[in-house]
Design a binder for these strands. Structure first.
Lengths: 223, 223
DNA sequence: GACCGAAAAAGTGTCAACACTTTTGCCGGA
DNA sequence: TCCGGCAAAAGTGTTGACACTTTTTCGGTC
């Protein structure tokens, strides 16, 4: 969704740095050097500075005054926190969407979902995005789509997805959509919270089984 | 909590602009002129630019490329959106806090609450802040304390509080704290959601009865 | 008198240079 | 050999000037 006409340099730089985070060109927890990025992208340090600040606002970069900026570490505990937040917000998102989306919009969503199911490649996030947009609450939409999903993509780009969850997720999404179509907001919210809660639990299980390798905040050069 | 040593200029400028928003020196929905602010604060435009960008990230300022930045309008529909988001997030916040806060911490909170009740001046937000801190979820805490409460303060600084809600709020807080002490996370979450939901409803009632006076987006000079 | 277009004004976006802070590495002393 | 302090280097913070975009205003035309 950030792929519209980006008239200003800062936006392009922001997208570029985000891609570098996604691809691993900038390692998680690694330093984010303004001057190096400026030279790499052939722009001045000003736009890079603002882009980093913007990413900092989105939680993708952490920095303190005069200290090197660092890419977010995204340890499993971090993801647990994010999923707890998601559970609450997406529950409200689907509750509002159930109340506010028109029948036509819901049918549209069901069709799109079936298509994605057939293609089987569509990131399941798309359903969540559509629901967030249907909630009619711009702040909830922004929080989910512009902040949390970015972090989620970043995490998934590194650790892959829990195997076997894909089919479960499809079934759960289907249940949620049926509850929405039945205009049962309480049920839709419960199902969504359970849906995300399960993902949280599988994360926590992962945290317990695997010795957390993320505790060692590695120090690696960018270039 | 933004009152610690702010070593960097940008942070000081950010605080100053925020105060200007709170005090009304910059009217809601009014223009935010970089050059004017820079001269007023006796700094260059760079820091002002970054500060505005930071406030934009917090939702206090909206801007699009090459267009004048404007202070957030904060209409009643905006506040309804914010309260819907709060209802979800604070529900999760109190749920987590109920599970994670120690008995000692809870007792501390009860004492502080009683004190605030006696003084009767303490902004009731303090209880919410303490709960958010006790949730152990840094992202939830940041979302509530660093973003939503700012907007809330901004709104309250303009429109005052709904009269008569104060005593109700105290009673509701008391119920929530009791549920926490009983370690009943479900009840605590329900109570919190009802607590905020009531505020939402009184907002919506306000929206229906009063003709929205915030629609007139005044255009006034900053300096 | 109303509408259209060009020029000026206002305001934002970008840049390169300079100032300050933190870190790193070296040297002398214990 | 180890520790403390000093100096150089790296990196961030700040500044003023210049380029671009949008809006306003003024003049001409229909």
């Amino acid at each position: 969704m950030p792929e519209r006409e980006q008239s200003t340099l800062v936006d392009r730089v922001t997208s570029k740095i985000f891609e570098m985070l996604l691809s691993g060109e900038i390692p998680l927890g690694g330093p984010v050097n303004e001057a190096a990025l400026a030279e790499l992208l052939s722009v001045s340090r000003g736009p890079v500075r603002e882009a980093v600040k913007q990413l900092q606002g989105r939680g993708l970069v952490v920095k303190e005054p005069y200290l090197k900026a660092r890419a977010v570490a995204l340890t499993i505990p971090d993801m647990v926190e994010i999923f707890q937040l998601r559970e609450a917000v997406e529950g409200m998102s689907v509750r509002l969407a159930t109340q506010r989306m028109s029948d036509a919009e819901l049918d549209d969503l069901l069709v799109a979902f079936s298509d994605a199911k057939k293609r089987s490649d569509g990131v399941s996030l798309d359903v969540h995005v559509r629901i967030a947009e249907g909630s009619g609450n711009a702040r909830i939409r922004a929080l989910l789509c512009d902040e949390l999903y970015y972090l989620l993509r970043l995490y998934r780009a590194r650790s892959g997805n829990a195997p076997g969850r894909r089919e479960d997720a499809f079934a759960e999404h289907w249940q949620i959509l049926r509850a929405m179509k039945a205009r049962d907001a309480d049920l839709a919210e419960s199902l969504m919270r359970a849906h995300i809660g399960r993902a949280t639990q599988s994360l926590q299980a992962l945290l317990e089984t695997e010795a957390p390798p993320s505790s060692g905040t590695e120090e690696r050069k960018t270039g």
